[in-house]
């Protein structure tokens, strides 16, 4: 068991290493001159050449990657070309907002999908099942940014229940939460539509198993059989999809933060790309990858918790 976790941890570290290297070398073949970004187009070629030299941009790529990696493991991602402050500082300011948004969206996704999926499975072939499937079809078909605009028009403009965008900061947690509800919902609805389908079919599969029938036969209530036997046994495919969806939710924040004017990592990545701020983009992409890889690592741990047979096999 401990061995298994150690092995997964090693895999986790190697994956991150591979991703950061791939991103670094990709960034290097992209056009754009950091010296130009820093000094502006008015600058002389001599000044730019001197700066490139100072930044070490003339060193071999592999050498530069190792230098970057050495800093990164200590939390030093270099200084942003366009913001002229350390990249780590930029990230630290914006990370809480994006994590809160993605976290809230994940909670809404999972809660909504489990309730809808279990409901559809227990009402298989009846009206409730059809309604859930129709909702899910609709959710899959609608693009998130369009859904965002619909939500803003309905809940912010017409009903005036929630702010249409912007972020008031963390000083007032209630106001901060209110600002995150619409963007988190916009992110979550599409994902929960997919996850509800997966939940439904996984539940239908498990409900055919003999141990569900025998559990019912001992005199347990149908609700207990559903939530304590069927759902836990249906979790493997559900958790697999959740792991993949975390990636969608994290990258989805890029679009959603720009639609709702939220000062998070998604906005930063957008700005950094338009400014050709390669050093910032490099750190951001690696960070997004790290979040996704962490989510998958947690999913792997969840499998161990779900299935006692896996726990034994180590």
């Amino acid at each position: 068991m401990t061995l298994l976790i150690l092995r997964r941890l090693l895999g986790f570290a190697l994956t991150l290493l591979a991703i950061s290297a791939a991103v670094f070398f990709l960034m290097n073949v992209l056009p754009g001159d950091p010296a130009m970004v820093i000094l502006g187009i008015e600058s002389t070629e001599d000044a730019r050449a001197a700066l490139r030299d100072q930044l070490g941009l003339n060193d071999p790529v592999i050498w530069r990657y190792l230098a970057w990696l050495g800093g990164a493991v200590q939390g030093d991602f270099g200084v942003s070309y366009s913001f002229k402050v350390p990249v780590a500082e930029l990230i630290a300011e914006r990370l809480p907002m994006t994590l809160a948004l993605a976290g809230l969206a994940t909670v809404v996704t999972v809660a909504l999908a489990l309730v809808l999926g279990v409901y559809a499975a227990t009402h298989h072939g009846r009206a409730g099942d059809w309604a859930v499937m129709a909702f899910s079809q609709l959710g899959i078909a609608i693009p998130a940014f369009w859904l965002s605009m619909l939500l803003v028009i309905l809940f912010a403009v017409t009903l005036r229940w929630l702010p249409p965008g912007g972020f008031p900061g963390w000083d007032d947690p209630i106001a901060a939460l209110r600002a995150l509800i619409l963007p988190a919902t916009a992110l979550a609805l599409v994902q929960s539509a997919v996850l509800a389908r997966v939940t439904r079919s996984a539940m239908l599969e498990v409900m055919r198993q003999t141990y569900i029938r025998t559990a019912t036969a001992t005199g347990l209530s149908p609700a207990r059989v559903m939530w304590r036997h069927a759902l836990p046994n249906a979790l493997v495919p559900i958790v697999t999809i959740i792991g993949m969806q975390v990636a969608n939710l994290v990258t989805g924040t890029i679009v959603i933060e720009n639609v709702f004017y939220l000062p998070g990592l998604g906005r930063l990545v957008f700005q950094a790309i338009s400014n050709r701020d390669l050093i910032t983009v490099q750190a951001m992409v690696t960070l997004f990858a790290a979040i996704v890889v962490t989510a998958n690592f947690l999913v792997d741990l969840a499998y161990l918790w779900i299935d006692p047979r896996l726990r034994a096999r180590t």
Binding site: A215, G219, P308
Partner: peptide
């Protein structure tokens, strides 16, 4: 109804695999 209990044919699949 708990006064009547049942045992089924298939012993391999009659217990929840996740529960001790």
């Amino acid at each position: 109804r708990r006064q009547t209990q049942m045992v089924f044919q298939d012993p391999y699949d009659s217990l929840d695999p996740r529960r001790s």
